[in-house]
Simulated scan of single mutants.
Amino acid sequence: MDRLHVSATSHWPNYLPEYVAREFGYYEQEGLDFSRSAPDDWTQVLTDLERKDAQVVLGGLWVPAMYHGRGRKYRAFAQLNHRNPKALVVREPVTDFEWKDLEGKIVLAPGAGGTAPYVHTAGLMRKAGVDMSTVRFVRDLSGPMLTELFLGGMGDALVTDVVNAAFLQHRNLAHVAVRYDQAGGLMPNSVYYTTEEVLGRDDELVFRFCRALQRSIDWLKTHKAADLTGLLAREWPSLDTEVLVTVVDDLRTSGIWDDIRISEDGYTEWLRILAEDGLLDTPVPYEDLVDPRPAARAAQLTP
């Protein structure tokens, strides 16, 4: 068995295919001794990779993009989320939301775990023609803190993930105005990245990992979340499992787990937004940041 440790920026249901592969022994069948961790300070994932405590990182594509040509060399090779599983929630039910509705409003956008919640939101707003000078953002704080503040009366809208949004709406504490996985187009929200050394290993460690993930994706396309009730209850015991099953089924059909291959169209749009917001001097060419071969081979070899 070859060790493969993933250091991830969080432990949450939008990463479900990774847990499904472990649940059904797909890693073991590939000869992988799989493990994962999710450090409280997400930047620890980079230290884990540099120290070789982890072979792979699961996180935002914006990290290897920002470091490209700036000291660290990371290559993304697969995606876990084909779309961004984020949502914008507001205080009252809304059926005809438009991004321009946020003009003159205060939007809470968590940032302690990464910059994507704000950057993608702002990019979608600019694309919709919102006058950004009229919108105020509260940023750089944790999701739980901003959620608590929003529920306490701060701001007009909150960027959160689809799972939290569903639970807030279920408890009638907030209402979903827009879901990014439905309205935001393709976006490689969570990707796997590593070093050239790991990608070049003779034992094809990364390819075998991709093949296990692809089997997991294939399984999720043909099975309902009710078949995973035990897994969901074990991994997220603080969440109401019955509600979570419904949310996971919704995510299954939304397209966020459609393909582990990083879409060039989604990549191009996301890099455009990152450059537009100043995180990059200019978009990095796809071939400079992504090694598509492991995921492409895995997709071809699975049913």
Results as ranks from 00 to 15, higher is better:
residue 167 F to Q: 04
residue 206 V to W: 07
residue 182 Q to T: 12
residue 210 C to S: 13
residue 220 L to A: 11
residue 163 V to I: 10
residue 249 D to H: 13
residue 236 W to A: 00
residue 248 V to M: 11
residue 205 L to M: 01
residue 230 G to E: 09
residue 190 S to P: 04
residue 201 R to Q: 02
residue 195 T to P: 05
residue 164 N to H: 13
residue 217 I to Y: 14
residue 170 H to N: 08
residue 180 Y to H: 08
residue 261 R to Q: 14
residue 174 A to W: 02
residue 164 N to Q: 14
residue 269 E to A: 03
residue 159 V to E: 06
residue 167 F to W: 05
residue 158 L to C: 11
residue 208 R to G: 01
residue 170 H to R: 11
residue 185 G to F: 03
residue 240 D to C: 00
residue 214 Q to H: 14
residue 171 R to H: 13
residue 175 H to M: 08
residue 250 D to C: 06
residue 233 A to Q: 15
residue 160 T to N: 12
residue 197 E to Q: 05
residue 199 L to P: 02
residue 163 V to N: 01
residue 222 T to W: 15
residue 205 L to V: 06
residue 190 S to A: 08
residue 253 T to H: 08
residue 205 L to D: 00
residue 157 A to M: 04
residue 164 N to S: 06
residue 228 L to C: 09
residue 265 D to H: 09
residue 211 R to C: 11
residue 238 S to W: 15
residue 181 D to C: 09
residue 170 H to F: 10
residue 214 Q to A: 11
residue 256 I to A: 04
residue 200 G to K: 02
residue 239 L to H: 10
residue 263 S to R: 05
residue 203 D to S: 12
residue 170 H to M: 01
residue 176 V to E: 04
residue 157 A to C: 07
residue 165 A to F: 08
residue 219 W to R: 10
residue 244 L to G: 03
residue 242 E to P: 03
residue 211 R to A: 08
residue 201 R to W: 04
residue 215 R to G: 05
residue 171 R to L: 00
residue 228 L to D: 01
residue 172 N to S: 11
residue 236 W to C: 00
residue 258 D to P: 05
residue 171 R to Y: 14
residue 217 I to F: 15
residue 175 H to E: 02
residue 168 L to S: 02
residue 201 R to M: 03
residue 216 S to H: 10
residue 178 V to P: 07
residue 197 E to N: 02
residue 177 A to F: 00
residue 169 Q to D: 01
residue 187 M to S: 11
residue 188 P to A: 08
residue 175 H to F: 13
